[in-house]
Design a protein around this nucleic acid. Sequence first.
DNA 1: ACCGAAACGAAAATATCTTTCATGAGTGAC
DNA 2: GTCACTCATGAAAGATATTTTCGTTTCGGT
Lengths: 316, 316
Amino acid sequence: MKETFAHVPGGRRATGGGSAPPAPAALAAKVRTLAPSMTRSMQRVAEAVAGDPAGCAALTVTGLAELTGTSEATVVRTARLLGYPGYRDLRLALAGLAAQQQSGRAPAITTDIAVDDPIADVVAKLAYDEQQTLADTAAGLDTVQLGAAVAALAAARRTDVYGIGASNLVAQDLTQKMLRIGLIAHAPGDPHLAVTNAVQLRAGDVAVAITHSGSTGDVIEPLRVAFERGATTIAVTGRPDSSVTQYADHVLTTSTARESELRPAAMSSRTSQLLVVDCLFVGVAQRIYESAAPALAASYEALAHRHGALRADRGR
Amino acid sequence: MKETFAHVPGGRRATGGGSAPPAPAALAAKVRTLAPSMTRSMQRVAEAVAGDPAGCAALTVTGLAELTGTSEATVVRTARLLGYPGYRDLRLALAGLAAQQQSGRAPAITTDIAVDDPIADVVAKLAYDEQQTLADTAAGLDTVQLGAAVAALAAARRTDVYGIGASNLVAQDLTQKMLRIGLIAHAPGDPHLAVTNAVQLRAGDVAVAITHSGSTGDVIEPLRVAFERGATTIAVTGRPDSSVTQYADHVLTTSTARESELRPAAMSSRTSQLLVVDCLFVGVAQRIYESAAPALAASYEALAHRHGALRADRGR
DNA sequence: ACCGAAACGAAAATATCTTTCATGAGTGAC
DNA sequence: GTCACTCATGAAAGATATTTTCGTTTCGGT
């Protein structure tokens, strides 16, 4: 029913997916991210764990297995999937999370946005949700992968960024910023154009695919082409186990917040993607600071003319 | 099996007797209080535990016994003395304590991003800054103006959204979302096109200008045209006193975060603008819920085909 | 130096966690 | 529809970790 994960065509293996260090507070986010790729029983366990960290921390494997109506083996498997060596470590993390929640005393606004919410509530809830998304993303981001991606981007001859729909805006954002520090980047919006572009890439170039679902064919296809042409490939996705990672040398995971009818997934995935993209940008800017600084200054300079240019016309 | 302490008549019991439940974070204090009544080896254990909760939480009984040069039995005895049923529970508490200390240390990141910041710091700082920006924006947003803007958008025959550069991406974001709920919106990227579009507007139409500086001529000009043609005009800007507001019926203020060389203003202004735009969108969606809901569902439906569509074509 | 009491650790006993393996449910091919 | 196959799942065996037991050691007092 899921991705088949046959073999990787190019022979290169994606290093992404299973990050090395366990997550301390990013657990809730991780559960949401990984939930879709879990089996039913594992989901039950994950749900219990995310829903009541404190309570679960007090339980033994057997206890949690009984509570969720599964077996010890399943509990351990779930712990593994969440990135811990075993249940013991998950339990430790759970205790930590519980303590944080206790002291953090989170939040009044837990409910979804309703049709009849006053506008002030909408603002508060949206702001809160997006803040949450940012925190989750930051906590869940694999800095090793990020570092590798930054290194590749900083050294690239040219960079392509693929994204469709809302993700295309993020792709353009990255592109615009890279151009500002003197790097060559494109964000083709048309799938055909994207593939055409991808064919031009070779070793030393970088291709970035941005897709929340990880299964957007129009974005995977150009990445695959770039991958096979030898370019370094980076995937920014909310589903670290999805098809797109097959062709990705580095995988950067964005967080998946709960969505609702009035708050489409696109909203939080965009926030998450933008943070990742910003991190990439700043990381690259650091690496090539010597050349980036003057380039940035120059672009400011150039823009200054456009600001206030029409101000003299006010009275006309 | 456990609960054997019933048989202890008096004497020793008095020291730990004060607290029935395990200590949450007052562990260090407890160690100090109880230290005098401890034996030498127990003191060593207690010291280690109080000195490095995080480190000790990672150790097993045997590990901690070796570290302190004592035996497992002593470690367990110490745990009991500190008020826990056994070492396992002490360890859990330790993990919690470590997590608290960790999170408490979070707001240490007030400084700007430096060229030599490790990548993990970059992530933390960016996320923190953007969260701050969101909070500021939400706090500073005038809900009355927002409500009026929402009303205008919801009733508009058509809507134009003007923005240049990074702001154009925000404009497109709003446009894309409005289209999804069945509203007619455009975000011309070309200034000339923008003006051309603006000329077509009339009373009952809405024009939105998005500009951080508020003085971007290329954005002000089309808004002015729309304003003069009788359209309802909305300005989303970080400078509520700037030129753009001259031609705006409603002004929505975005927040201006501090910027630095490595963190251009575009970054936080974008975050801020997006929140405003999201608020507009959700507000509008609420207002026209009857027609928006089916439209949203339909666009989901239509997109489903594009996901994984190319998966079968892999080998082609 | 001797006695007694408490501290202490080695190792047995127990609880807990992890792995293995057989089974059955679900899926795709024919 | 049936068949072959994969994969999720839990029972139970196996491995670790924790707790208890118990004998030895240490230390203070006389």
